[in-house]
Design a protein around this nucleic acid. Structure first.
Lengths: 345, 345
DNA sequence: CTGAAAGCGCTAACAT
DNA sequence: ATGTTAGCGCTTTCAG
């Protein structure tokens, strides 16, 4: 009942009084700024902990930094993104920066709203995971705040980028399956609604990589792509279409593990076995792929690495907005498990 | 190359000049505050859109609100949480509030750090999903900022709560399996490391509900709980232990769908079939449970509902911090699918 | 109904 | 090496 009024926050002024110094000195200690004697340092720090002082990030932001990094991701249901986030946290944990997540729920408008919200809250930098925005929009954002884009194949002087070589990743899959003797290798893709994004989105590049690799193996006539979405439902529906073909594929390459999950369901529902009747290969090598009975062959992108690289690039750009932009491209590897084997007969 | 200096932000002052009014008026329009004539309203709004003005949330926060709501969740890998988040967004989308997520990575210290970070960024309110903090700590937090706790069985005058009846949920499962003829019904629980939290955490209450229900059905002697974690790995390990029993259970009740997933893997690895050899029931009714081949019987908690209720409670508390606290308790239901059937023979 | 002016907690020139 | 002081963009008394 005693709805005790929220006790007034301890401010820099309280600390200054307690330590008998000026607020400037306290501020300097706070920022580890140059020009404070060790003695002062200690005295001020003592006052801070005595009083239980915590800097007010929002207020700091009005002049300097908020020590906040915004991470936009398309949705929170895709198990690949946590890897990236873990990677980013790995480097940020050691700093004063705090990550806050903004999921875009796979809607362009929401992505836009979230991104603006982050800027309006004066975050120090943004990590954008597979954003659906146009390159122009992204550069616009990058003009307002340091930005690192993850998993979009674009290059700009205004922002840094971290990607994996999706063409190579798709080729790994096709080559692996072709080496096993498969010819009818189908691909479940994520449909791209934005026409101008075709050259920069990982899903379209993965599909294109699949086509190239098929041709390179002399399997151009067997190219078979169904475009749904990278989701359990998408994989399920895609696989159902493929299984209904008169000449059924002997192998399915799903553009994402989460879609492979759906495909596995559809295959089971159809009374077929993996890999006996049909091989399945995923992409992302999420922990689900590794687990027990499934044993999904999948492409490892190095999500943690992408995340930590992104965080590092961002920190460096925050410290020096003028530094030349960088593009980090990681090479994928294939992790072979039980879901891929030679075709039947 | 033209590292054009980030164009200065449009502020309330620019708008005021453009509209030939004072900043006060602009501020009032911004907040829909009382005492501005319709004419003024229109004029100011026009200037705002002409200039592309966007309020600086961080600056607003220094005096009033930031229109930001922080949502802390234990981890982003559990597929149940997105439901809650969707529910919360459902009500918040219509407002000026923006949700930002802070994952705690299942570590108490990180949860604490995240929560403080949200307060320091002067968020207007916090939604805490299954926090691991003690009731005292939670009340402490609630003194600093409006708080709604989701999925902890606690009652406090300082904060609002949304829960489901976990005792009833566990009973639904036990009764269903017992009705099918099962006697050796085992439970995979999430171990509680914090002793004092035993009475308020959903996992412990679910386990206790299981015990009660078993006794009520005269199956007290068959009670069998393995405590691992609510995760794929936890379910896998738990099921392996259970399958190794000399008298193997004929049914497994996993405290969360994600653990049930692991259990299903372990059962498949052991060469057993579901539900032929063993029945499996989950909790949370995540979309994974519904999908295709799996068809997992599971307890529906109404995650979306929990999320939207939480958001509503929070908005109301933000508007009136003195209003009496409320506890919303939802009743779970059982969704029966193919993974549960009568025991063998 | 509208405006002037004093902060919110902190940083960054600019003194001293 | 330390202190004074003017803002950052906005809200909010308090006058008019």
């Amino acid at each position: 009942m005693e709805q005790s009024a929220p006790p007034r926050r301890i401010t820099i002024v309280d600390v200054a009084e307690h330590a008998n110094v000026s607020t400037t000195t306290v501020s300097k200690v706070l920022r580890n700024a140059y020009g404070v004697s060790p003695a002062m340092q200690a005295k001020v720090r003592k006052s801070m902990s005595d009083l239980g002082y915590r800097p007010h990030a929002a207020a700091r932001g009005l002049r300097g930094r908020t020590y906040t990094i915004g991470l936009m991701l398309p949705d929170i249901r895709n198990p690949f993104f946590p890897e990236i986030i873990d990677g980013a946290n790995e480097v940020l944990d050691a700093t004063d920066y705090q990550i806050l997540l903004g999921p875009a729920r796979n809607v362009r408008e929401i992505e836009h709203r979230v991104t603006e919200a982050m800027i309006d809250r004066s975050m120090d930098g943004l990590i954008l995971i597979v954003p659906a925005a146009t390159p122009t929009e992204l550069e616009q954002t990058a003009r307002a705040v340091p930005v690192v884009v993850v998993a979009r194949h674009l290059r700009s002087t205004l922002l840094d980028t971290v990607v994996t070589d999706d063409v190579a990743g798709a080729a790994l899959v096709v080559d692996h399956l072709a080496d096993l003797g498969h010819r009818r290798i189908a691909h479940i893709a994520h449909a791209e609604s934005q026409r101008h994004l075709v050259t920069t989105m990982p899903n379209t590049i993965r599909a294109e990589g699949y086509r190239q690799a098929m041709r390179a193996r002399g399997l151009g006539d067997e190219i078979d792509v169904v475009a749904t979405t990278y989701s359990k439902e998408g994989g399920y529906l895609g696989a159902r279409q493929l299984l209904a073909r008169s000449r059924r594929p002997t192998a399915i390459f799903a553009g994402a593990d989460i879609a492979a999950m759906g495909a596995l369901e559809a295959i089971a529902d159809a009374g077929l076995s993996v890999p006996g009747d049909i091989s399945v290969v995923g992409y992302d090598n999420t922990d689900f792929a590794a687990l027990g009975g499934i044993g999904l062959t999948s492409v490892e992108q190095g999500g943690r690495q992408m995340g930590s690289d992104a965080a590092r690039l961002l920190l460096e750009r925050i410290d020096d907005r003028a530094k030349p932009s960088r593009l980090i491209s990681l090479s994928p590897t294939l992790v072979v498990r039980r879901s891929s084997a030679p075709p039947p007969r």
